[in-house]
Write a protein that binds this DNA or RNA. Structure first.
Lengths: 180, 180
DNA sequence: TAATTATATGCAACTATTTGCATAAAGATT
DNA sequence: AATCTTTATGCAAATAGTTGCATATAATTA
């Protein structure tokens, strides 16, 4: 049920269209909660029906009309009460670990290859996070309150990637000792 | 589609009932891929239908008959070819980060509380992983090949929890500077 | 000039996951 | 003696997420 809360949260700062929300999800919130545009459009419809968001239709020529969503008081209240509820998280479902459990039964190169690919992904993500950090959070000690949570999320992302990268190195070393 | 592969992987080592599989998932593979018993029973039925596993029915009195599943050659082949395919992973969906994005708009204590709870969870998990490490992987340099992947998974778990724990400390510090 | 990317929305079908329920008995604890 | 946990299976309904398709134009890139 909390794609809805993620959307409401994104609407705290600014009014957005479904399209813009989907893009936001690709960069900030989406690091910890990805969602496809189809999902977002569907959810927005539900939130509107429930009275948690308002819509402003902006006609355009050629393209479909823009539908700009904004938080209602009810939506804000919904967030407020959700915050007090228990925090759920589904641990990542990661096939890489299933593959690792197969070492010894399948050709090890395939697993090595998967780890190497993952390593590249982590490196790419870390670089991206670092860029965001440099651009927006150069001096974390002077952050306004409402930015502190976002900064902490970014920090979590950075450290996760660093840890994962270091692990990839060690994993490749150990996998190198496995007889094909 | 890869709960099935996780199940097949678990069956590599030993034949198991659905119940036993569910318990396995709670301890080893489940650290990176959780599944409920309902899901597992359903999937086993599908795998059997597809010819990837065999069933041995063991009558019991009182309790329902045990259904002990084992890998077929076809199942093993299925694993083999799956290994070469791209590794999918859905990043964790974690409400904690949505909550962090709300700092500045909702009472900060609620968020602090959520982080503190998470901290306790990470501590508990880390302790568990450490126990498993001490019991089964005391000397990683002498591991047989087929244990190396499992060990690497555990190692990933340990480091993830350590990183997360340290982050919780820092997060609590910074959240302490937010005005209620 | 042709092809691709970005803007902008959404339906339909399928797959995956969660939640609630149901049954049944053995063994452990209070 | 009564309650709780473990063993052992599974259905049904609801919720969540993915994948494929569909439309339509402007701007950019090759």
């Amino acid at each position: 049920m909390s794609l809805s809360h993620a959307i409401l949260t994104a609407l705290l700062d600014e009014d957005l269209t479904g399209y813009a929300l989907a893009k936001q999800f690709d960069v900030s919130l989406g690091f910890f909660w990805q969602a496809s545009h189809q999902q977002i459009y569907r959810e927005l419809k539900g939130l509107h029906l429930a009275g948690s968001v308002n819509v402003l239709e902006v006609p355009q020529h050629g393209k479909p009309d823009k539908r700009i969503y904004s938080l209602t008081n009810q939506g804000r209240q919904m967030l407020d009460s959700w915050i007090t509820q228990s925090t759920r998280h589904r641990g990542a479902k990661d096939e890489l670990f299933i593959k690792l459990f197969n070492v010894g039964s399948v050709p090890v190169e395939q697993v090595t290859e998967a780890v190497a690919q993952r390593q590249a992904e982590h490196a790419r993500k870390l670089e991206l996070y670092r860029k965001i950090e440099a651009r927006n959070y150069a001096s974390p000690s002077t952050l306004p309150d409402r930015k502190k949570g976002v900064y902490l999320s970014l920090l979590a992302g950075i450290r996760q990637e660093q840890t994962a990268l270091a692990w990839c190195d060690d994993a490749l070393d150990l996998l190198g000792t496995v007889k094909a």
